[in-house]
Design a protein around this nucleic acid. Sequence first.
DNA 1: CAGTGAGCGAGCTTCCGCTTGACTT
Length: 722
Amino acid sequence: MPQKAATGKSEEKKKSTSSAKKSKVLKQKILVIVESPAKAKTIEKYLGARYKVLASMGHLIDLPKSRLGIDIEHNFEPEYLTIRGKAKLLKELQQESKKSSLVLLASDNDREGEAIAYHIQRAIAEKVPDKEIKRIVFNEVTPHAIRDAVQEPHEIDEYKVSAQKARRILDRLVGYHLSPLLWKKVKNGLSAGRVQSVALRLICEREKEVEEFIPEEYWSLDAEFKKGRHKFSAELVQFKQEKPELKKETDVQAVIDAITGKPCIVTDRKDQEKTQRPKPPFTTSKLQQAAASRLGFTGKKTMQVAQQLYEGITIGSSRIGLITYMRTDSVRISPVALQEVRNYIKNNYPEELPEEPVYYQSAGKVQDAHEAIRPTIVDYTPDSIQKYLNRDQYRLYALIWEQFVASQMLPAKFLSTAYTITAGDAVFRASSSLLVQKGFYKVLQVSVSRDEREKVIPELQINEVLTLVGYKPEQHFTQGPSRYTDASIVKVLEEKGIGRPSTYAPIISTLLERYYITRENKQLVPTQLGKIINSILVEYFPDIIDVEFTANMENLLDEVEDAHKDWINPVRDFFNPFYKKVQELMETLESIKGKLDEPTEFVCDKCGKPMLKKLGRNGFFLACSGFPECRNTRSVPLARCPRKDCNGYIVARKKSRGKGRLFYGCTNYPQCDFVTYFKPSDTYCPKCGWFLVERYDKKNGYHKACINPDCDYLHTQEEHHD
DNA sequence: CAGTGAGCGAGCTTCCGCTTGACTT
């Protein structure tokens, strides 16, 4: 090992002497600093030998983690430190600066990027005074844009830096004061903040709507007809000149009785052409939503796979970054990419190429530092590179590629036809939708399923008398609001301007880690703890745990940035009453520590006292209420073990060291080896008595099914309403 | 598609926003 180090050192020495020699002949290099290593590699290729490009990997300097780090008494002066683990990298940047003739700070062209540049500049100036350091910006990683950018070096925008500083300080003040209040009054280790607490609030409020919703019964009545070999159905839309009110089965029967025997005649036909435009290329939020609904990915998984595509896949002998940067709020694409995709469409779908390029408007306030998410090389069709990708990479790449190519193709046209069918006092409607011009649908494979676009019924004539097959009454229940999913909460947060592309996925992870919410069948459900935290925050800090708070903050930051307004007074005006309130509550609010434990029906098998459900650092567990005299604990039983003569319970388990996927096994293991990967629900099969589990398949969607492999019982959630 | 088995409670914790590794017990 010492030998190895020695050779390494001597090699380094050799290198540096040879480069020193060279530098006398050649000019010194220009150092460019970007945020992402993958970007650094690409840019170095574009700029050529005179430039050296290094990556900062995001922020290097930040507030301390273990204390507030803000001097309240002195104009909220922040205490900035090198982030733990980043010292080596910073040192490298400083040393490389020394060797370079010029340093160009090329962090992202947004608020955070400006702050990153500012902190790096200060750190370099400390070690290498008088070094020329400039800022450059570009909004797309293309040779043209990069070469333009290095021709226009400028100074750092100190107002942008101030805006970021104000944002950082405000978030720190809120988070590092609210969290300790929760530690003192509720439980150690909890957290609250401008973003996560609003997300929690939205989830809790939706849950309340779900809980309060009372499903109401209603019926629909379809008439089924036959023409030739084709069957089709029509929906009852009118009865005795009015919209039918079918509350009970008897209402439906009354309609059927009234029209039985009456001829069914086609009385009207309305044709309408509908144009459907393609959607813009993906932003982070939209990609997460599409991957959730198309591929069933969580936000976290989408971002992981996208990162792999961005960093590069080995194709043949070289590694190629397949997509542009995946954290973006913009739908803009570079002129080069636009030309390339139009060429691609021209060569492959010439009839679907619009005369003019399609331009999309980004929604809401965008920072626009990056392009939309698109394939870097449009000629790499999903199929042509499938063999280099794993299944997840292929499907996500296909989603991105299709969305991008489609976005520059002609709209699709549908012919929708609505027939009115009259039978006595009843009016039915049958409609069809026919794709008459495929347009952008020609490239959509992964993005759209087969039966999603068209609905076909046979051609009918006015006054035609139809052959009735029968009436199909169906019972329904009104559906309440649905719980948020990863995708839908991200959509709302984005619309409200809360959080950023880089934080959408982590926000959900934080709420899960804190046990504020759980994910059940992809739905986000608040826990008891989450509801308690939310009610405290909403009661005492309604104006902070609010979307308006972020909106106001953004307005302030805009003023700091654009109108060069001072941020210290507004922050003080916010902080003083806030701090007073926190201190007051620290004194007066009654602690509910220990009251969080929920009583259960289970009894301690060691001392006979009742067991409590508690939250530990690894999740919920049962503990004897006689603690600390009796230290007995158990896992939370989710269902009774279905094995004959086994009195065990099914509990959640993990592989050793808490790693790996959750599974569910019997507490009597190893005597009983019953095990499943499906989560047990607390309901049992009426046919065989085994417990039901939550399952998903394409045919039924989410539903409960019996875990017994020999039992065919399953019911959908809709039927579960009683 | 297959795949599988501890210990927890009173560990000084926490924010939001940038960005990727991962020396070892």
